[in-house]
Design a protein around this nucleic acid. Structure first.
Lengths: 181, 181
DNA sequence: TACAATTTTCAGAAATTTCTGAAAGTTCAT
DNA sequence: ATGAACTTTCAGAAATTTCTGAAAATTGTA
C-alpha cells in the first residue's frame, strides 16, 4: 500500500480539512483514502499507508462507522475486517450532510425549545427570549429544509442545484402552490 | 453586566457548539452574548460577563470581525469600542453560511483543480483521479448552489425553505425552464 | 478447550489549541 | 509633546484533543 503523490496530497488535505468538517485529522485521512481507493482496505493497511498506530485506526474506523461513512466487508479465507467508503460520492456527501445536521443543529434546537418554555421574569429577559425565539425559528426552518433536501432523490437534487438564479423565477411560478403544514 | 440564567445557558451552549460551527469556545460565547443582548457591549463588559481575560476578548473580537459577525460602534463621550451583532438573525445566519462555505469548500476545490491537472501515470492513479473528479464536480455544484442560496433575498429564501416536499412538484413544473450555463 | 489471529480499549504521552496577563502600541485631548 | 484611556500582541501556561502501544477482549478454528 504505497500512496501515489496525488493520493498523498488528497489524503493530507482531507486530514487538514477534517476539523472543519467535523472529524479529526486521522479520521479525515482515513475517509479520504477509502474514498479514492476502490479496493477494500483492512486496518493494518490503513495504519501502514497513513503511518498511524493500529489503535488509532481502530478508533477512527469506529468514528467513521458512527458517521455511517464506511462499510465492512470480509474476504473469503481472511479473518480481517475490510472497509470501503459507503456508497457513491453522492451517498457519502448526503450522509455527511445528514450527520452534520444532526450534530450541529439538533442539540441547539433542543436547548432552545427548553429555554423558551420558561416565563421571562423581566423586560431584559423578555427581550433576550425574543431574540432566542428568532434564532429558534430560523434554525428550525433550516433543519426542515435540510431534511427536505436529504429526502430528494439524486435527480431532483441535481436539478435544483443546477437551477442557479432560475430558482427565483421558479418560485414565482409556483406561487400559491405551497399548500403545506 | 450580570447574565440571567437563561442567557447564561444560551451563551454556554453556543460556547460548546462553537467548535462544530467553526470557532472556539469563547468566540462562540461572545457571539451568543452579542446576539441576545441588544445593547452594544465593550470589551471589558464582555470579559467580565464571560469571565475571560481582556486579551482573549480582543482576539475573539478580531475573529468575529473576520467573520463579519459584529459591528463596532462608538458612544458619544466614550472612547471605548462597542460591539453589536451585525444585523438581524437572518443576516447573521447568512454570514455564517457564506463564511463557512468559503472556509470549508473553497480550499478543497482549489486543491482538486490542481490535482486534476496532472496526467495520471498508471491505471491506479487514473482510477483515483476519476473518484477525485467526482468529488470535485459534487463540491463545485454544492458551492454554486450555496452561492445561489446566498444571493436570494429573504422572501424567496423563506418561500423555498417552506416548500417542503412541494419542491419536487415545483421542479417538475419548471421542467425545461433551466436554461443556464 | 486451547490457541492463534484479530480488534478494542484506555492510561499516559504528545501535539495542538486556547487562554492569560504583562508589555507594547495606539489614539486622543490638552 | 505628554499622558491617560484604551486596544493589541504574544510568550508561556493551561486546557483540550489526539495518538500510541501494550494489555485485555473477542472471534474463529481445530
Amino acid at each position: 500500500m504505497n500512496l501515489t503523490s496525488q493520493t498523498q496530497a488528497f489524503v493530507l488535505h482531507f486530514g487538514e480539512m477534517g476539523s472543519r468538517w467535523g472529524f479529526n485529522r486521522t479520521v479525515g485521512q482515513m475517509f479520504a483514502l477509502l474514498t479514492v481507493h476502490s479496493e477494500p482496505l483492512n486496518a493494518d493497511q490503513l495504519a501502514q499507508a497513513l503511518k498511524i498506530s493500529r489503535g488509532n485506526v481502530s478508533m477512527g474506523l469506529k468514528e467513521l462507522q458512527a458517521w455511517r461513512l464506511v462499510e465492512m466487508h470480509h474476504l473469503p479465507g481472511d479473518r480481517k475486517d475490510y472497509f470501503t467508503a459507503a456508497g457513491s460520492i453522492w451517498d457519502l456527501a448526503r450522509t455527511v450532510f445528514e450527520e452534520r445536521r444532526k450534530r450541529e443543529l439538533d442539540p441547539t434546537l433542543t436547548l432552545l425549545r427548553q429555554l423558551l418554555l420558561n416565563e421571562p421574569q423581566d423586560e431584559q429577559e423578555a427581550q433576550a427570549q425574543e431574540r432566542m425565539r428568532e434564532v429558534y425559528s430560523l434554525l428550525e426552518l433550516l433543519d426542515q429544509f435540510a431534511n427536505t433536501l436529504s429526502g430528494l432523490d439524486q435527480k431532483d437534487l441535481l436539478k435544483l442545484m443546477k437551477l442557479g438564479s432560475g430558482i427565483s423565477k421558479l418560485l414565482l411560478k409556483g406561487k400559491g402552490g405551497s399548500r403545506k403544514q
